[in-house]
Amino acid sequence: MKIIPAILLCLAAGTAAQAQNSLEKLFDSTSTAHTRVLDTYKSTRIIQGQSTETLHKHELDFRVAHRFGDAGGEFGGTKTFFGTDNSTDIRIAFEYGITDHLMVGISRSKGSGNLRQLYEGLVKYRFLQQTKDDYVPVSVAVFGNMVISGMPSATDKSAPDYFGTTADRMTYVAQALVSRKFADRLSFTLMPTYVHRNRVSYMDMNNMFALGAAGRLKLSKRLGLLAEYYYPFRTTESKDYFKSLGTKFYNPLGVGLEIETGGHVFSITFTNSTAILENQFIPETTTSWLQGQFRWGFNISRRFTLFGKKDWKK
């Protein structure tokens, strides 16, 4: 059982290496005979989750994501200016395109959930890109990350943030991303996801599958409407246990606006989940839209081209 998460993660990362040479040939052939569909999304992230977009070769993406406190409910309203007095999670990241289809990144997040002070390493590889003539009908990418918490350990062994070993601090995500752009305005993505947490609280799940779906409706050349939803497959036994303790889990749902302004992509988002990383918002969302426990947030992306623009355009 212990080896399964490793295999899945290695599949996500390893596919990049194993398949790259042969698939590069496919890209080469499609680039001449079949025109690739571009800009399925404007950014490498949709709202919370990943899109099938990757950075260009030698492109550095500096990203800042922020989620405020509850906009409504008992913590929201005018007294906190609809949540802006509080922050539930903040992420700062540097991501880099090794090739036009393979990117890596590092990030630091505040974290929101059982673990905090999170350091992340990520890799994403797009091995198929949709073509306009439907020779390749969808874009497909795999994403994987490894996250370690730097927070002090709890003293209570029953707490999820008690760390007996360094491995107890680690969580992982492996995700397949399948997207299609319909005509010029509508993009749709399916995101089957696997989350592994090395150590969890009593009756929580170390391994959790989830299915995500997201879409983008292009409103103008620079503006898009985004929506994203995840359905985590938590066991009834686990749900019932936490419900008996007064904790109910909700499915993450987000809507947002994507605005492109030159080298920046700016997303304004509204989500019920408090966390930014998949490792947390998929298994640990306990806040509900219907109780006003949604928040606004933003993702800012600023891209820089390293080693000269001419080099990566070749």
Partner: peptide, 28 residues
């Protein structure tokens, strides 16, 4: 070289992966 890097990463993942559930909370 690429294969070596990914094999190393695979080993790292395999070594670090575990499934542990905290014991049931008991009264303090």
């Amino acid at each position: 070289r690429r294969i070596t890097i990914f094999l190393f990463m695979s080993l790292l993942f395999a070594a670090a992966c575990k499934n542990e559930q905290a014991p049931s909370p008991v009264s303090g």
